[in-house]
Computed example of a mutant assay.
Amino acid sequence: MDDSEDVSIDMEKLADTLSGKLETLRHLSKDCSIYRVAEPTRCSNPSHFTPRMVSIGPFRHGKEELKASEEHKQRYLKYFLQRTKVRMERFLSFIKERETKLRNCYAETIRNLGSNEFVAMVLVDAVFLIEFFLRFYKRKLTTDDDRIFRKPQLRKRIWHDFLLLENQPPLFILNDLFDLAKTVTDEDAFYENISFVKITCFWFRSQVLVFLPLDENQNIPSVEELHEAGVKFKPAAGSTKSLLDINFNQGILEIPFFKVYDNTERAYRNLLAFESMHGYDGYFNDYIIMMACLISCPKDAELLVQNEVIRLGNTETVPTVFGNLDPDCTLNSYNFQYSGVVTNLQAYRKLPWHKWKATLKRNYFNTPWASISVIAAVILLLLTATQTVSSLIAL
């Protein structure tokens, strides 16, 4: 056998090995919605993407620094099972039947968990979340041994971990397990008229969370610049359902009310990462760009606080929150959702009358006494002019 034949055999073996790998490639499902944060993003702010108290899902499962929360999860599972007549075996079988779909929700193959361990993890983690939201919705469910709801600071830290991109379960399994528990319960009407979505929204409404190189053509003015041009600010009407609903009409810029917490930047950074990786249109991305330009210094934040658009303790933190997120955002000038708002704001600023009116009001009509003084001065000037004209006519 000559060298050429040896090379041919080696290439055939190599081709067979590579073909085998191609045959075993995991099917990429359209259900994928839970991602690993890209390393460049993680390296810039690793603490913003890493759970501190509790792991949810397979990415951080079993980490030594998070094992303390496992007892809390098991305790919640115990009370959850006591409240329903559905046996644990039924819940586990229910999850097992959906294991493939559950695994497909994650952006990478879960190799560190066998089938039984994966199914058990899903049950414990999913019920922990369900029970957490249930106990907030129905406070009477809080037990004496509940170290989470009996200690608000611990609850707050755990809640922060729920917002992390990598620390998520598939939403459908939470809904399905909640509905399964509702089929037979010890307490009549306990779950009547409630759903997992309802109890979750109840929690989120109580929390009210408070996105880049900027194209110069967009030229979004700051709140202070708009204030000097006579623009007024007010929180968007109570009927608005979106944090992103910023509108400008008849000289009034409406911005949905929001609160700024210590955890706001961390939460927003994970929302940005999810929006980018899941392929959604950049709605939140555009919101951050808009807010970063509107609130570029503490004075901008102060004006929004005065107009009850923002609630917080320190106005200097607001520009920092949005400013720190700038590098994670990208402006698409052709598809920027606030282009119409910006165009109208720019047009309003270009009309001198609006600035003159604002300056007049700010400098001469800013208090009742100042207004009276100006009116008195105008009347005196008119009387003097009238007297002068009368004297000239008399001559």
Rank of each mutant, 00 (worst) to 15 (best):
L209S: 11
K151V: 07
I246F: 04
F248C: 04
V210H: 02
V342F: 13
N219E: 09
L325A: 08
N314A: 09
E166W: 03
D161S: 11
V341L: 15
E228K: 09
L212R: 12
A358F: 06
N366V: 05
G20D: 07
A181G: 10
C32I: 05
E99R: 13
L177Y: 00
L102M: 15
T183G: 10
Q250L: 14
N366Y: 08
N219S: 10
V321Y: 04
S115L: 13
L383G: 06
F118E: 01
V7L: 12
S333V: 13
Y283E: 09
F336M: 12
E70F: 04
C293G: 04
R135N: 15
F190L: 13
S373M: 10
Q218M: 13
F336E: 08
F258R: 00
L14E: 12
V122D: 02
E39C: 02
L28D: 03
R155N: 02
N314G: 06
K241W: 07
R111W: 06
A15Y: 03
T142P: 02
S242V: 03
H227K: 12
R311E: 14
L22M: 02
A267F: 05
M1L: 13
V7P: 01
S195A: 13
T183H: 13
M121S: 02
A301T: 09
D31E: 05
C32Q: 01
T386S: 14
K21H: 05
F322N: 01
Q306I: 04
V119T: 09
N270M: 12
A237S: 13
G114N: 15
L253V: 02
Q250E: 13
E228G: 00
V119C: 07
F258W: 02
C32Y: 02
M290K: 06
H72I: 10
A38C: 01
C105V: 08
P235H: 01
G57R: 15
